[in-house]
Structure formats: C-alpha cells, structure tokens
Lab assay of single mutants.
Amino acid sequence: MEVRTIKVFTTVDNINLHTQVVDMSMTYGQQFGPTYLDGADVTKIKPHNSHEGKTFYVLPNDDTLRVEAFEYYHTTDPSFLGRYMSALNHTKKWKYPQVNGLTSIKWADNNCYLATALLTLQQIELKFNPPALQDAYYRARAGEAANFCALILAYCNKTVGELGDVRETMSYLFQHANLDSCKRVLNVVCKTCGQQQTTLKGVEAVMYMGTLSYEQFKKGVQIPCTCGKQATKYLVQQESPFVMMSAPPAQYELKHGTFTCASEYTGNYQCGHYKHITSKETLYCIDGALLTKSSEYKGPITDVFYKENSYTTTIK
C-alpha cells in the first residue's frame, strides 16, 4: 500500500517557510505537534488534498525554529505562539472599519479597549522592536488589523473576551517599542525636605499616572512627601515624541487643539466601556464603527496623549 502524501510549508514567522512532505494517514499533531492554519487549530486533523502548498504555523520545537521565533517575536515564552494563534482565530472574524481616516474595530468580545489602543497607536510616533509587531502594525494602518490585535493580546497575556485596560495595554506595548531616546527629568520640591531631581528613561519617561493635564504637570502637581507634608512635583525636561497622561476616570474637559487623542471610560472596574476622542479640525468621538463630532467635550476621561518633541522648564 502506497503512502499518500502532500507537500506543505511549516513556519513560526510566515517569513521562513520549511518544506514538509506530510503523510495523509496521520494527523498534523502526530507529525508536527500543535499546528495552526489561519489561526485555526488543526492539530487533530489529517492532511487533505486542499492543504497542498498551504502554510501551517507550528510551535518552535527545534533550534532553527526557536531562533526564527525569537528573532521575529522577541520572546522565548513557549506558550506565546499558541496564544497568538488562538487569538487570531477570533480577531480574523472582527470587522476593521476605516473611521475618520483611522483603522478602528467594530465592537465584539469586549474589544473596546483594543480599538482605543489601536486608534491611539496610529496617532503617536512609535516604532516597535519585534519585527512581528512592526509588520502587523503597518498592515493594521492599511486596514488589516487582525494579526496586530492578536499579537497585542498575546504580548499582554490576554484572551479574547476578557476586559482590558488601555493604560495597561499601552504599557505592555511600550515595553516592546523603541523608547531608548526618551528621557524625563522631574523635580520634587518640599518646604521641609528641599528639592530632589529624578531622571527617568524609556517607558517611565512617557507615562504618568495622577493627572490628565500635561500643562498642569509642567506647572506642578501636589504629591505627598515622605515627611508627610505636601510637596510639588513638576516637569523639568521632556525628550520624547509623545507623552501619555493618565488618571482614574473623572469628568474632564478636553479643549480642541490642546491634545492629540484621549480615552474615555464609562462604567466601573468590573464592567465598563471605552471610547476614543481625537482632536482634528474639530473633536471626534470614535466608538467602534461609530463616529460623532463636537466642538467641545466633557466626560469621564482616563488617558490623554500629547505630541511632544523637546521641553525644558522655565521655572527657576
């Protein structure tokens, strides 16, 4: 009895394709271990004539594949690729409408935090270190965002349907971005203890939790000093293409032309909904596939993004 075979390709990165001759009487799992086709788990399936010449994702289970996976995804987590594939199996079914010149995501599976993050990423200057993220990001900007969303979920250790947080998501993504040249110098002034300067680099240099107003941050924000008295913390120097200011959701007025974009969060910790506000020729609110415009805006804002380049204080 002759062994019926077909020729397929296996890959971990969709760049390096490895030619395989597979036995049609055995499952993919018996031949390769966990195997995925377009995100779908085909591990328990036997090869079919229609699979001839198709590319299958496999887990990096030998040295060659491990090197290829690390170079593309910059992670050695053995569960990463499987999590990416199972997320992709959902995100490829989502709709990605162009809204006001940006790629958004039609609401499904509690994905409003991903839509808000995706919209924000198209408006701030950011370059990702893992080629996987950078490639998928370019495709997302062009309207094909399924891979990018699935990668975000995998890097953030999230599953489809789980509630997510924009600030946490951005923080994970910033860790995989090139923020080497970003720098922030802060000064804390206390009447009792004097003053202390701190220099922050990388992710810490672009994120701040405690106030939404970048102007206020430049002037000074009140913080408790270690001595128990009130101290003032203010920005001395900022070198970065953008800054992200966050605070627990509270009524906040966004003035046209003073910011790049913002995240609105309605609801409580267990259950809520994100919308995205962007400042173009007027203010726009993007909620999944829905767009509304207004000249002014007041609502429960939790993150505001500002364009920056270089700032030095005039406070002496």
Rank of each mutant, 00 (worst) to 15 (best):
T192H: 01
Q251Y: 14
F217V: 09
E2C: 15
T103I: 13
Y36V: 07
G272R: 00
N49I: 13
Q196D: 10
T258R: 05
K229H: 09
K183Y: 08
I277F: 01
I105A: 09
T266A: 01
V3K: 13
L59H: 10
P224S: 13
Q122F: 04
A262Q: 00
D38Y: 10
T120W: 10
L153N: 00
Y284M: 11
A87L: 06
Y138I: 15
V67M: 14
P224L: 14
E239A: 05
S240D: 00
Q230G: 04
G33H: 10
G39F: 08
Q270S: 07
T19Q: 10
Y297K: 03
L65R: 09
E162W: 03
V243H: 05
I6K: 07
T292I: 05
D77C: 11
K275L: 07
T91R: 05
T232S: 05
L114G: 07
R141V: 13
K316I: 15
Y172G: 13
E144P: 01
Q195V: 15
I105M: 03
Y172E: 12
D109V: 09
T258F: 02
N100G: 07
T10P: 09
A177M: 08
I152F: 15
M245H: 02
K275P: 00
G101L: 06
A108G: 05
Y297F: 04
H90I: 12
I315K: 15
D165R: 06
S86I: 12
Y274E: 01
T103C: 08
M85V: 08
K7A: 12
D165A: 05
T232V: 13
V236Q: 01
F217T: 07
C112Y: 01
E239H: 10
F32N: 09
F305T: 02
F9H: 15
A140F: 09
Q123G: 01
T258Q: 11
H51I: 02
C156E: 07
F80M: 03
T10N: 06
V160D: 01
H176N: 04
L212P: 01
T278E: 08
K127F: 09
H74S: 07
H18F: 07
L133R: 07
E68N: 11
K183T: 11
C227F: 01
N157D: 10
M170P: 04
G33F: 06
T169I: 10
E2P: 11
T35A: 12
R4Y: 11
G29R: 05
I286H: 02
L200P: 09
L119C: 13
H273S: 00
P248N: 03
K158W: 01
H48R: 11
V99C: 09
L290Q: 11
I223A: 14
V42M: 13
G299C: 03
Y73G: 05
Y269Q: 08
Y214V: 06
N129D: 08
Q122S: 05
Q30I: 08
V221C: 07
T11M: 05
F32E: 05
K316T: 02
T159Q: 13
H276K: 07
Y137F: 12
S294P: 09
T159A: 14
V8W: 03
G53K: 12
T278G: 03
K218S: 01
S310H: 15
S294G: 05
E144H: 11
L151T: 04
K218P: 04
T64V: 12
A87G: 12
K191S: 14
Y57W: 09
M244R: 10
L133Y: 04
E68A: 09
S246Q: 00
Q230T: 13
E281W: 11
N111T: 05
K229G: 15
K106R: 11
E253H: 03
K7F: 09
E144F: 06
C227L: 01
Q175Y: 02
W107P: 06
C149K: 02
N178A: 11
Q175L: 08
M170C: 13
S294L: 15
F56S: 02
R83H: 00
C227H: 03
M207I: 07
E162D: 12
C271G: 08
G143K: 05
Y73L: 06
C271M: 14
W107N: 03
E2D: 12
K54V: 11
K44L: 13
H18G: 01
T10A: 07
G220I: 03
M207L: 02
K127T: 09
S240Q: 03
V203T: 06
N89F: 12
P300E: 13
F259P: 00
K219C: 09
L291Y: 15
Q30W: 15
G39C: 14
I277Q: 15
A154Y: 07
P130A: 12
T169S: 00
Q238M: 04
L17H: 11
Y274T: 05
D13A: 05
C156G: 02
N110S: 08
T282S: 12
G143W: 02
M170S: 03
G29Q: 10
T91F: 01
Q175W: 03
C156H: 04
